[in-house]
């Protein structure tokens, strides 16, 4: 059985390495501040530490007042999985285009998924090598998975 690392365990081990990176945590979830997402992911992937070598998926959810990125990560060697979340919103204009650091440098598997999120949810990934629309065509107006998109 894949063990699920609880949010509080994850939060405490992350807080140890990088104080101040956790904005909120409870029994299941852990929220990371968008600024410290990249160092947190590096810590998570560290083979000597938590060893989350495999990025299962990135999801984005539109909570109207903010966007939430959900990273499902997995350690194949130790067979445990974890979830980290990241709330982001653009400054000033809530419905604008929030920017988060791209994790493609850490997990290459994020490449297409981040492009998909940019395409459908309109979250910009800073440092992505090829951030273009992927499912829709260039020049499409809006980001259809947002709650305020009227198709």
């Amino acid at each position: 059985m894949t063990k699920i690392i609880s949010g509080s365990d994850l939060a405490s081990s992350l807080e140890e390495k990088l104080p101040g990176c956790i904005t909120e945590s409870n029994e299941v979830d852990v929220w990371v501040s968008p600024e410290s997402l990249l160092p947190v992911c590096e810590i998570l992937k560290d083979p000597d530490g938590l060893d989350f070598s495999y990025l299962t998926s990135i999801s984005a959810v539109d909570y109207i007042d903010s966007f939430e990125l959900v990273y499902h990560i997995l350690s194949m060697r130790n067979n445990y999985s974890g979830v980290i979340k990241c709330r982001c919103s653009s400054k000033g204009n809530i419905r604008g285009e929030p920017t988060v650091a791209s994790v493609t440098g850490i997990w290459k598997g994020a490449d297409l998924q981040e492009r998909e999120i940019w395409d459908l949810m309109g979250i910009k990934f800073d440092g992505h090598p090829n951030l273009k629309r992927i499912l829709l065509w260039e020049g499409f107006d809006g980001h259809p998975l947002r709650k305020d998109y009227l198709g």
């Binding site: 299962t56 998926s57 297409l112």
Partner: peptide
Amino acid sequence: VSDGGVAPYRCKVRAPSFINLT
């Protein structure tokens, strides 16, 4: 993600074919 309603608030698919193209 559910908000308690009859329809999901968000339904995201981790599509293996899509990610295998990376």
